[in-house]
Design a protein around this nucleic acid. Structure first.
Ligand SMILES: [Zn+2]
Ligand SMILES: [Zn+2]
Ligand SMILES: [Zn+2]
Ligand SMILES: [Zn+2]
Lengths: 480, 480
DNA sequence: TAATCAGGTCACGAGGTCAG
DNA sequence: CTGACCTCGTGACCTGATTA
């Protein structure tokens, strides 16, 4: 999926610090977050619109927007993303598309519903924009924007559950105007979160329910706390957030519980680790909290319990399939195919190949079924899941400690601090431990050979290319 | 790569404010742009020729030329240039060289297209190209565009689109054609490589995926438009430009050469999402040299164990190598020069390289792939892409997807801001002001277009394309 | 093993400086 | 004013850790 940088609109390089961003905004946030004081005030009354071209013009506004879209040092997570996350993204896209389509026609129809959630997914969607407004071509930004973060979806769902849509609706994007003004707090304004997220299109199967788990189904993992990270408002820095709050209030009810909690409660959180904790505590009320650290997992489960079961059944794959179907006309039933695919997927691993596919082969995707809430483990399906990140440390003493220390070490004192404090926290959650270990090394096997072939990896991935150097290495440096 | 100042012809110090310029012209523009009114009118009716010697004689004409070659406060870009950009530059050089050689003979072939840049090294030209040529919004600016260019080469093969030539940097030249003609394109010529490159099929592993799929290879579904992403020319926005340009018809061939593209399109590009490719200038500062290497990294391997076989191989690096080879003596043509450069380059860096060369070590280079916009339609095709990022490096495919759309969006605001101030200033020179204004408009326009894009979105990589075709298996990989 | 991302590295260019 | 030089933020790419 393509995502656009929620801050500047450039194509996103990935999900960084809680939001889809480009490399530049990622680096900027990383550099700036720890040294906010160094940023000079906006000369334009804080109203600068941030886009690709002018993103370097006003640091204050760029940072503001980063926060606005939910970036947080504490919100990050490592590792590969779950398919759930991806699915959400897809769904969003669809919705957006649908909305867009619809809107063109019906603009008026739903206008209200969609709101951007200020909070919630704030980042995402809200920010992005909204699709609907514009005629197709016109639109300010693209789809991506709409895509939301995966998180959003989740969030949304949960929130609205039924509700409305997510997203986007309108917001225009940034560029243009608006958006960003934080002052105005678009967020607030837009506030509608609604999204229907889940059912953007109606899925055949899904429709009713479960497929996309209603908020309730959402992975347990989602914790309110998690959100915090994501959303700027919560962020301390965002002082203003308070301002926002009013809206937030409204939002809250919207949101289903977790979110609401977050939103409401959290006006801001401090960066410190405390965030996490605090949050946790807050948000969750005691009940959840078990986990500490991982914010994510943990309790989430708690929340979600029921659904999950069923939910599990409905695996991600399932959802995907449904989604796909919707997309594709051709395909008929899903089910059958799916199975096959799945088998493959799992197996495949490697190969991907796509070729084979000839017909409908399907690739299977493997997904871990959503876990029941209970589980703890958490998995991170959640988009939001911050998993490990040790930061929380919580758990694991051992590893965590290391990791945490290491990683974090640098930066920000803030975080670090948190950790320290947090450490104490650890107690609580045991779960983490498991995670850690894995790190085994991996690797190295082969290299030499090279051959492995994975052939292609899918290429997709390939970020890196190997090249043989036959001879002259090339110098790519410009200058020289 | 050496570049000459597009304004005065002196060796360029780098890419400043959207064009390769010397330190003097950089500083001049920086000082003058904000204070245009202060510049006195030309005493020579605005016809002064700007060169190294007389550049300080007429500020009005110097500034005019700066604007003409695409300089803009908003056109500047920060940070390191992508490898794609660099590659693109190399390719262009080759072509140029080739062209130069060839032209004498072949002029007739594509006469119109090629223009030589008066200034110097045409190469860049593209950049230079003078704006005049283009209708306002046309310029390609963004990185992506450049990337495309790079890609173009690849594409070129297959397609033919050509673009108009850009132009020469200098004003006067404008017409000439130069370019790069891709026709000549050494690369192509060399064909072997070319083919391979282009023809994905040919590659062993990759086969199916073309690195860059030649147009021909593209899935039926692919629409021309889709390609846009890859090549600037292809890009919708570009298209327009083509229209604009007389040459456009011929465009096809133009495309082939990256250069041409550049020249034409790019007057300057903004940093937008992709990168741009610039050419390097030569300045040498002591510092530079060293690094290059990075590129080479070792590790990267991890990911890519196998070998090149895979798509990976075909990475930017791959292309570069290919290019180099062509250049190299062995290959024939241009080579000689190249080698030198390369040697130098490499040497700096690391060292290691040199020796190794012999065999093949593999270097891995990471590059963010330019994206191409895919068509939406693609959707159909596409399976769903779940990948998060865009980057796909690997194959070209990735590129395809978004670029288009995204790319263009950009800007405005920057300009806007700048423009705002500036515009007001205008009084003095009307002409200048006009120029400035025009640009701004252009930008805007472009953006608008760009945004739409969605169509393209699809992103798919080649892989995906396949997949889609087959049916829909889903690809859960990130995209690269 | 593959995919992702926090962080780090350092190529680059905008700006500032100041002798000429 | 000019432009060689310096400083410093930016962002493309790399590295290693983490998760699926
Ligand atoms: Zn950004
Ligand atoms: Zn500002
Ligand atoms: Zn000059
Ligand atoms: Zn004059």
């Amino acid at each position: 999926m393509n995502q656009t940088c929620k801050v500047c609109g450039e194509p996103a390089a990935g999900f960084h610090f809680g939001a889809f961003t480009c490399e530049g905004c990622k680096s900027f946030f990383g550099r700036s977050y720890n040294n906010i004081p160094s940023i000079s005030d906006c000369k334009n009354n804080g109203e600068c619109v941030i886009n690709k071209k002018n993103r370097t013009a006003c640091k204050a506004c760029r940072l503001k927007k980063c926060l606005f879209v939910g970036m947080s040092k504490s919100g990050s997570r490592y590792g590969r993303r779950s398919n759930w996350f991806k699915i959400h993204c897809l769904i969003q896209e669809q919705r957006q598309a649908a909305d867009a389509a619809a809107q063109g026609q019906h603009n008026h129809l739903k206008p209200p519903n969609h709101m951007v959630s200020p909070l919630g997914p704030p980042g995402h969607l809200g920010l992005l924009g909204h699709p609907g407004m514009y005629p197709p071509g016109l639109y300010p930004r693209t789809k991506e924007e709409f895509l939301m973060l995966g998180l959003d979806d989740y969030k949304v769902h949960s929130n609205s559950a039924t509700s409305p849509s997510i997203s986007s609706p309108d917001s225009h994007n940034s560029d243009s105007s608006i958006d960003m003004n934080m002052r105005n707090n678009p967020l607030l304004k837009n506030s509608n979160l609604n999204k229907d997220l889940f059912l953007p299109l109606s899925f055949p199967g899904i429709g009713s329910f479960p497929v996309m788990p209603p908020p309730t189904f959402l992975p347990p993992t989602m914790q309110p706390s998690q959100f915090f990270g994501y959303h700027p408002f919560y962020h301390p820095s965002m002082i203003k957030s308070s301002e926002l709050s009013p809206t937030s209030s409204s939002s809250t009810h919207i949101l289903s519980s977790p979110l609401s909690n977050n939103s409401t409660n959290i006006s801001r959180f401090t960066p410190n680790h405390s965030e996490e904790k605090e949050i946790d505590s807050d948000r969750e009320s005691p009940s959840f909290n078990n986990n500490n650290n991982n914010i994510t997992n943990k309790h989430n489960n708690n929340h979600i319990p029921n659904g999950m079961k069923s939910a599990e059944e409905f695996t991600k794959r399932f959802y995907l399939d449904a989604v796909l179907k919707t997309q594709q006309p051709d395909n008929g039933v899903d089910g059958s195919t799916r199975n096959d695919k799945e088998a493959e997927l799992t197996s495949d691993g490697c190969d991907d190949d796509e070729e084979e596919e000839e017909e409908e082969e399907e690739l299977v995707v493997q997904m871990t079924p959503p876990r029941s809430p209970v589980d703890t483990k958490a998995d991170q399906d959640n988009p939001i899941d911050l998993s490990m990140k040790i930061r929380s440390n919580s758990t694991m003493s051992s590893k965590s400690s290391e990791l945490g220390s290491v990683k974090q070490t640098t930066d920000e004192s803030d975080d670090e601090k948190h950790s320290d404090n947090e450490e104490t926290d650890d107690h609580t959650t045991t779960t983490l431990t498991t995670m850690i270990q894995k790190r085994s090394h991996v690797d190295h096997n082969v290299d030499g050979n090279g051959d492995e072939v994975k052939q292609f990896e899918s290429t997709n991935d390939i970020k890196r290319m190997k090249i043989q150097i036959t001879t002259t290495p090339l110098d790519l440096t410009t200058r020289v």
